[in-house]
Amino acid sequence: MAGASKAVADSRANLPFVYRQYSAEQLKQVLYKMYLIRRFEEGAEESYMRGLIHGTMHLSIGQEASAMGICMPLGEDDQITSTHRGHGHCIAKGAEVKRMFAEFFGKTTGYCKGRGGSMHIADVAKGNLGANGIVGGGIPIAVGAALSSKMMKTGKVVVSFFGDGANNEGAFHEALNMAAVWKLPVIFVCENNGYGMSTSTARSTAVKNIADRAAAYSMPGVIVNGNIFSEVAEASYKAVERARAGEGPTLIESKTYRHRGHSKSDRNRYRTKEEIEDWMSNRDPITLFENELSEFGFIDDKGIEAIRNGVAQEIADGIEFAKASPSPDVSETGNYVYTEQA
């Protein structure tokens, strides 16, 4: 993305990374998208309650700065693999919410034509190779995509998002090792929200920080506050530079929190109300970013209002689009199992 001009940059010299690196327009766009992720998930949740969406879903409410920060330095050609908690990644990488809603409603206009739903949301055209129903499933795939990038000399960088729970799967360890041995342009992003379902990292993971595991695979391990957009974006920026320079992978641990339960069936028995409340009222990533933007003079109240209204409209339109879209015909269950050949 184009940076801020020299004069502006000087006046921002003491501000955090993103305020030096990006223009006010770009940063306002980030706020817009953070709201878009939040309202999309609230809209999806409400549609689920009203019976318009079936199955289950995993909401990333509270983790928006992580998705946006990581994707900030990525170009449209760069690629990501995502997780079951992947709505934010999908939007951050450029997906349209109307086609995401359509997917959730099982419609042909959805990104997966109604076959995948929330857990398999993808937008291949925009470089999102897909969410994944298998914890850790996307990590080796990202390494494969990075291998393609290296072999085909496309210059693409690949980001693999995964949760703290996934770092205990064998796939994580095997993938990090190969990426390091082959110096592949891949960034491993562990969104550590404290829990894999009900199991806290303290109960599941032998190291204190997931980033500590980078040492075992000879790559930098970076810890960031995942609720502060600028911190995440800065770490991602450096990892992208390193990857593009052919220096190999980075493991970023983005410490964050999910406000909602694990999925639709969570009784929240493994954490306290106080803990949830604390993260919601004191460390909400959107509030933190919005406050910084105002404080540093990048936006005023009217600007914020305009963003919120714009997002509300896009969400309402998206839901209407999804509702009005056709369902696939049951005669088409056999489609896409194999590649159609003329």
């Binding site: 109604g114 696939p328 049951v330 056999g334």
Partner: peptide, 10 residues
Amino acid sequence: ETPIPYNPEL
């Protein structure tokens, strides 16, 4: 002879 689709009717 297909994976299980998401759409409820399918």
